[in-house]
Design a protein around this nucleic acid. Structure first.
Lengths: 341, 341
DNA sequence: CTGAAAGCGCTTACAG
DNA sequence: CTGAAAGCGCTTACAG
């Protein structure tokens, strides 16, 4: 069985007795521009169709420098949040005639750097990146190389790089306010040990809201490792609940929320009786928990779509200089886990 | 700010005053084969390194026909099972110097077909596909075009196409046997309306086990739409539990399990008191449910790694004819949801 | 209106 | 041992 041979431009050309250039021009819709006869144009199109011709993108890329490939770097494609984001980006990319190449950085700068190199080497036309802590330098370098680039989920204030993300400050402010309205005062917060924008903004949202509500003395932020948060969450909860006697906890990511629910379940702490809980990101676990979990919902679909839109704009129009900042609003979905008993 | 210009082979060559061919040969480790002087070889390598040369993969591909790109088609990258599988495939691919391009078919043949075309057009060296129902024809076509190809999670008995998947028959047999050992007799089964291998094998595993245990009269398989299973699951459970008075249910996929738990929760059915449950695939929901759910665990890591291994073998050694069949064993993780009360 | 040629960056068979 | 040339498939500036 032979390797299927693709028909090339040349094949189409020779079948018609014309030059490959002519065929290329017609097929790229530049017949008028080059003042090609209408009859000729039609017969070229007909021949290409009947021979089932599709252009070799590799050759086209070598010539013109475009692959219609978008590189996507998330921190972990197996994390449901990023899996969903990837799906949305994929859908939007396909609509716009692009294909997505992806990689997971595991919140690690040197992995991110390697992935960027690999993806650039594959000739991606642009990149969508969830940057990790300390990636500022390599993101800046990439940006300065003038490769179309959009950050998602997180951004760098100091860089002129476009991004699409949640209003993280608003998100935790909403959650904190809700708990305060329910009558909770001793409200604690669990976050990653990271200086990346969304972590910082989420913490600020909580802290400012506590201050503004006259609850400064109860501010308590536990920071846990981003790479292996579970032990940190366990230790933090043991301290918060058994020592500090906190009455409510806000988990600032989906992973932290799930890890927290494991500890609370294992320790037989009742929600919301022993402690009220607010989680982050939609999740079946939240809905199916014996006391359904109140959570902060991200407009993840819009976040993903906007990222692709901005990127494609840059790739097509070369408006690399323009910094687009899309900040989308959170929603608080209230269930029983955060109600006052 | 200018577009960063990559250093090319030619740049390295002219900096040394030698021909590009020489540089290419040395950098590809063929110095000895071409009897290039050792000193020369060393200086070429040093120059390439100091100039930060990386080969242009697009050009290399046009020349040699390889992109080091693996195409992955799953049914839905946002489904946690496939997200995890994708991550494993990604990791293994990177280890072997490949990058993954992906797409989601939504269990739809014509989407699958389009994706195959798109990915082939991007010049992928090989494809890993989760085939959907009725995809037999297009998979055969692809196989006959001699493109390296491996199916995962599902396969076609009738085709000579390699695959890596779970022993699905054994999986549900294990689950059924466990429930029978617990003393359950009226055991029902929920599956997709699909003729794809894993659905068929899972149903057979259950049915045969019931027959062999003298419980033929209780065999009851409910089939629900694969595209939008939730309404079907709701209807099936209403019938099974409220009419047929089934005492135990096996859900044959992760999605079906979750949808089922939603109905059981909404209807206030107690597990395992009102009905015992066995789910499919590891999941936080199962562990955090008030009565932790017994489930069938797939060796998903091995399934993914083997798929990449087989594919890379085909791509490198061109052993396209050989049909590799990797069938991996399931494990039953027993929790309280399936115990006899 | 249309064809021949150059060139994107690489590799390999060929000639010395 | 080493260089010059051809060619992968395409597109565009150039010459008629």
């Amino acid at each position: 069985m032979e390797k299927e041979k693709k028909v090339s431009l040349k094949d189409v050309a020779s079948s018609l007795g014309v030059s490959p250039a002519l065929v290329s021009i017609v097929l790229n819709g530049k017949a008028k521009q080059y003042r090609i006869g209408e009859q000729m144009a039609e017969s070229v199109i007909a021949a290409a169709k009947s021979m089932n011709y599709t252009p070799n993108l590799v050759a086209r890329n070598l010539r013109g420098g475009t692959t219609q490939l978008i590189g996507l770097i998330v921190t972990d494609i197996s994390n449901p949040f990023f899996a969903t984001l990837a799906r949305i980006i994929e859908n939007r990319a396909i609509e716009l005639n692009y294909t997505v190449v992806f990689g997971s950085s595991d919140e690690n700068v040197s992995n991110t750097k390697k992935l960027i190199e690999v993806l650039l080497n594959k000739g991606v036309d642009g990149l969508i990146i969830v940057p990790c802590d300390n990636a500022e330098k390599i993101i800046l370098e990439l940006h300065e190389s003038n490769k179309p680039l959009v950050l998602v989920d997180r951004y760098f204030q100091s860089l002129d790089v476009s991004f699409s993300c949640l209003n993280n400050y608003k998100a935790t402010e909403l959650a904190t306010l809700h708990l305060i309205e329910q009558g909770y005062e001793n409200i604690s917060f669990i976050a990653y040990k990271s200086e990346i924008s969304n972590v910082i903004d989420r913490i600020s949202g909580y802290e400012d809201c506590m201050k503004n509500s006259g609850l400064s003395q109860f501010i308590n932020v536990k920071r846990v490792s981003i790479n292996n948060p579970k032990p940190g969450v366990y230790k933090a909860l043991d301290n918060l609940i058994n020592k500090v006697k906190t009455k409510a906890i806000i988990f600032s990511t989906n992973t932290l929320s799930i890890d927290g629910l494991y500890w609370l379940t294992e320790m037989n702490k009742r929600i919301p009786d022993d402690v009220a809980v607010v989680g982050f990101d939609e999740n079946d676990v939240f809905n199916l928990f014996y006391s359904p979990i109140t959570y902060i919902k991200q407009p993840i679909e819009q976040i993903g779509i906007e990222a692709v839109n901005i990127l494609v704009d840059k790739m097509k129009n070369g408006e690399l200089a323009k910094k687009s900042m899309v900040v989308l609003e959170p929603e608080l979905i209230i269930k029983t886990s955060s109600l006052k008993v």
